[in-house]
């Protein structure tokens, strides 16, 4: 081989060097390999560019406000003072509310679909739920805007204010004028948006369990719930956690469903019924009004950078939990 390559012209030797298997390859083969490798590289470059540009764009804000940017709770375009805490708080709390509501919905529905529902109905409902997981998020936003917001403003908030106004501990969660917008409404809409997705994944995970395990447990006299809680859930824990974290990731970066119903006020507070904002909704609303090169634009890009880190973290969490139990 060495003798052969030594006597071969320059070009052929290069080809032999490129080949991984050690055998000689034809020109088109190398070209094909390079072509698909280049498209893989391009995908890498796009994400790299996304992260880098967001960081570079936000660097002005990070330089001006330091690392305290993330925990500073004033967002005031008039005074040119920006801090990320208000929208970050909104994003985190609305996501947590959304997951907290969607989790029992998804788990209960998946339980019903895999253990109780008659097969034909389960097939229909299961397919419908899977299809609805593909509905664009702006539809959920519109539905929330025209259905949930008036419902909150006219029914839920007056009821809560009337009955719990003087109860300490709850008072500060529910205070605020009955606009109908706020973290609770956003959380509800997010829950409705991610519940079909989480249900579909959980149903697949539950259904993937070998029937033998389920049947053995029933054979030992276990009730339906015993089987669910002591056999199915431990067996499919990783898949369930994956479903929850993926749903969380969707809720974190959701823009359209939230922008309609959050009220868009950059303030921090514990009231779940007062208008707030989230990172994504703030970017969507204020970006068009921010002149290029301004500190405000940079602050929005810095927010984007933080949101990117959050979404990274949730994906990494999902991978870690999946990897640990395998």
């Amino acid at each position: 081989m060495t003798l052969a390559t030594a006597t071969q012209p320059e070009e052929a030797r290069d080809k032999a060097g490129v080949s991984h298997s050690g055998s000689r390859r034809s020109g088109p083969d190398t070209a094909f390999h390079l072509l698909v490798a280049a498209s893989a590289l391009l995908v890498l470059v796009v994400l790299g560019g996304l992260v880098v540009l967001m960081g570079v764009g936000g660097s002005q804000a990070f330089r001006t406000f330091g690392l305290g940017f993330a925990f500073h709770d004033v967002w005031n375009p008039v005074a040119d003072q920006y801090g990320a805490w208000a929208p970050l708080f909104g994003t985190i709390v609305s996501t947590l509310i959304g997951v907290a509501i969607a989790l029992p919905l998804a788990f209960g529905t998946a339980f019903w679909l895999t253990a109780m529902a008659p097969p034909r109905i389960a097939a229909i409902v299961g397919t419908a739920v899977q299809l609805l997981a593909a509905v664009p998020s702006i539809i959920f936003g519109m539905w929330g805007f025209f259905t949930i917001v008036p419902f909150m403003a006219r029914t839920v908030q007056p009821f809560l204010t009337h009955h719990f106004r003087h109860v300490p501990g709850i008072r500060f969660i529910i205070h605020g004028a009955p606009f109908g917008t706020g973290l609770m409404t956003a959380g509800l809409v997010l829950a409705v948006m991610i519940a079909p997705f989480m249900t579909a994944v959980m149903r697949d995970v539950f259904a993937a369990m070998p029937a033998m395990l389920r049947e053995s447990a029933y054979g030992l006299g276990a009730t339906r719930w015993d089987v669910m809680w002591k056999v199915v859930v431990p067996w499919s824990r990783t898949g369930m956690i994956g479903a929850i974290v993926l749903g969380m990731g969707r809720a974190l970066g959701e823009t359209m469903a939230v922008t309609f119903v959050i009220g868009n006020v950059t303030a921090v507070g514990w009231s779940l019924f007062a208008p707030r904002s989230t990172v994504a909704s703030l970017i969507a609303l204020q970006f068009p009004e921010s002149p290029a090169g301004s500190l405000r634009l940079s602050a929005l890009l810095a927010l984007g950078f933080i949101l990117m880190l959050l979404s990274f973290a949730s994906l990494a969490l999902a991978r870690m939990l999946r990897g640990d139990t395998k």
Partner: peptide
């Protein structure tokens, strides 16, 4: 990276392309 891109908030893609 492709997995990450799949779960990146879509508004950030808009910011990037902008």
């Amino acid at each position: 990276v492709s997995d990450v891109l799949m779960s990146v908030p879509s508004i950030l893609v808009g910011l990037f392309v902008y």
